[in-house]
Amino acid sequence: MNFEAQLLNKRILIVDDDVSLSKSIKEVLVSRGFKNISNAYSISEGIDIFSISKIDLIILDVMLPDGEGYLLAQYIRETSDIPILFLTAKNNPDDEVKGLDSGGDDFVTKPFLPKTLIYRIIALLRRAYKGESELITLTSCIIDLNNASVKKEEQHLSLTPTEIQIIRKLYTNKNYIVSTEAICDTIWGIDSFGYEKSLMVHIRNIREKIELSPSKPHHLITVKGLGYKLVI
């Protein structure tokens, strides 16, 4: 599963007492591909759902039947740093400051364009969960850096810490040449001179795990005299 697909699986809680608007927001999210969406219509309902469910982002109205949404944001911030996106009919800079002070991450004023809301949600999720983008999908396999593993066909292969460092360095610069010296410095530090042969062994081992034909690699390419490149 790639990073965008992971984001679409995040659980979103909409807290707004306007039933029609809540339904519309949910429909917009579903049309974009989001799958796990819950609704609450008051602070107390929001607390109940947040307490029993793993919520990844909250869309929170300011004016609710049992108080201001800022109170719910403060409650959430006592235990969680999940993204909070405020919705409000108030077009007042002081309200935006109050929302951000209470723990909000972004602020959208009603009425709003559906695509604007979607872009704001996607941006918040990307920032909040960027550490989860450690899945690298190749034509031959899926590399999971978090779990130090490679899934190739029906095989599950383990990666060593050094192999993970090499792959991460190459992936950070994917589709560009990374010099042998730069990779060695990342792995072995400033005293890395003389580790070129060790790097070659690690590269060969990585190819055995990620390439369908290690002797004719499609993804981990040697650029003679320069270094290596991870082609995505």
Rank of each mutant, 00 (worst) to 15 (best):
C184E: 06
I167M: 13
D191I: 01
I164N: 07
I167A: 14
S198I: 14
I136W: 10
S158Y: 05
E132F: 05
H156M: 09
I187A: 03
I164G: 06
D185M: 08
L135W: 03
G194I: 11
I206N: 03
L170H: 05
T186A: 15
I136V: 13
Y171S: 02
D144P: 03
T139M: 12
I183S: 02
H202T: 10
S149P: 01
A148K: 10
T139Y: 05
C141G: 01
N205F: 08
T137D: 12
S133R: 08
R168P: 09
L170A: 08
L145M: 02
N205K: 15
E154F: 04
S133L: 06
H156R: 11
Q165K: 14
I187M: 04
F193L: 01
A148M: 12
E153G: 08
I164Y: 05
G131I: 10
P161A: 04
T180K: 09
M200I: 04
I167R: 09
G131E: 14
Q165V: 09
N205W: 07
T160A: 04
C141L: 01
Y171V: 03
R168Q: 15
L135D: 05
E196I: 02
Q155R: 06
L145Q: 00
E181V: 15
D191E: 09
I167L: 15
L159W: 11
L159E: 08
I177Y: 08
E154T: 06
N173S: 15
R168D: 15
E134R: 07
S192G: 07
S192Q: 10
G131L: 08
C184K: 07
S133Y: 04
D191L: 01
D185E: 09
S198E: 14
A148Q: 05
N147Y: 02
I183Y: 01
I136S: 10
T160F: 04
E134I: 03
Y195F: 06
C184N: 13
H202N: 15
L145Y: 00
Q155V: 00
K197W: 10
T180R: 12
D185P: 00
S133T: 06
G189N: 11
N175A: 14
Y171F: 11
N173W: 04
N146V: 00
K130E: 12
I190P: 00
K152Y: 07
I206K: 02
S179M: 09
I187L: 02
T160Y: 05
G131P: 03
E163S: 07
I143Y: 00
E132A: 07
Q155S: 05
D144L: 04
I164L: 13
I183L: 02
L157A: 07
G131D: 14
S140F: 01
Q155P: 03
S133W: 08
L145I: 01
I164P: 04
K151D: 00
N146E: 06
E154L: 08
T160D: 08
I143K: 01
I136H: 07
N147K: 08
I203F: 13
F193P: 00
S179H: 13
D144W: 02
T186K: 14
T172Q: 12
G131C: 06
I206T: 04
G194M: 10
W188L: 11
N146T: 02
E153L: 13
T186V: 12
D144N: 15
L199K: 12
L170Q: 03
E132D: 12
I203M: 15
D144F: 05
T162A: 11
I143W: 00
N173K: 15
E181K: 15
K152D: 08
S198R: 15
L145S: 00
R204F: 05
W188E: 07
M200K: 14
V201R: 14
A182I: 12
I166Q: 06
